[in-house]
């Protein structure tokens, strides 16, 4: 296992314990899991993580994984081959700095953290990273339909919440929605279509919207009638079904 030029962090700084993670699906499985998607049990913030195999050590027996936080929007973009795996990891760092390398062991039927290292993207050994071009479709053994259903269910529920006016202050969920709206509009209509220009405007100002979520959500509901949301929802589901 590569010796990292940094010290492991103390347990009270661990980003999350393995027992809090709930396995969703494997993105890469070659006789064994190599990249897996997890959510957090009972998490209202809808946080997602990928655990990606990096390295191992025979004695003492352990293996090192890169913990990659991501949003549903990022997962959607990655699963639809719109961003590379490397871009996903870079984006994750910009959203949730630092990233973590975790040495895992399996003892007494449970996963234990042996060491946890907080690293910047630049500090990750290059052999731990995917190639520049690697996309979701290049991953071997992906549970693709399971992952697509997971994304689809999330956004269907979110659209339903918006229709009922129950997503007014949920910045992370709305940001994910805007990501998916943007990509879908780009694919289906292009952003030149006046009907969807407001999506581009909202996206452009997304990072300046702290404290303005109600306004953003209000705009969403003003600009989209229930019929439009229904129509979009249907179109979006059809688009997913084509993947």
């Amino acid at each position: 296992m590569i010796q990292l030029p940094i010290q492991p962090i103390s347990a009270d700084l661990y980003p999350i314990s393995y027992s809090e993670l709930e396995w969703v699906a494997d993105l890469e499985y070659v006789d064994e899991p190599l990249t897996s998607l997890y959510k957090i049990k009972g998490d209202s913030a809808n946080r997602l993580y990928l655990l990606q195999w990096c390295d191992d050590e025979a004695e003492p027996m352990s293996n090192r994984w890169l913990l990659i936080p991501l949003s549903y929007g990022q997962l959607y973009l990655f699963a639809h081959n719109k961003i590379t795996y490397l871009e996903l990891i870079r984006q994750s760092e910009s959203i949730s700095f630092p990233l973590y390398l975790i040495d895992l062991t399996f003892k007494e039927s449970f996963i234990h953290y042996q060491n946890v290292y907080a690293v910047s993207f630049q500090e990750i050994p290059p052999t731990y990273l995917p190639t520049e071009q690697e996309l979701f479709k290049d991953m071997i053994g992906s549970e693709t339909s399971k992952i697509m259903n997971f994304i689809s269910n999330y956004f269907r529920n979110l659209l339903s919440d918006i229709k009922r006016g129950e997503a007014t202050k949920d910045y992370a969920r709305l940001e994910s929605l805007y990501q998916i709206l943007y990509e879908t509009m780009l694919d289906i209509y292009g952003l030149h279509d006046f009907r969807y220009q407001w999506v581009a405007n909202r996206l452009a100002s997304l990072h300046g919207l702290n404290g303005k979520i109600e306004e953003m959500n209000s705009l969403l509901r003003q600009n989209w009638s229930l019929a439009q949301v229904d129509a979009f929802s249907k179109e979006w589901e059809e688009e997913l079904a084509l993947v």
Binding site: E32, D56, N63, W65, I111
Partner: peptide, 19 residues
């Protein structure tokens, strides 16, 4: 199986049926 094979130490394999 990979979860049993002493030459493989993929800890997560031991958390999967397929392991």
């Amino acid at each position: 199986p990979v979860a049993i094979n002493p030459n493989s130490n993929n800890a997560l394999a031991k958390t999967r049926c397929s392991g």
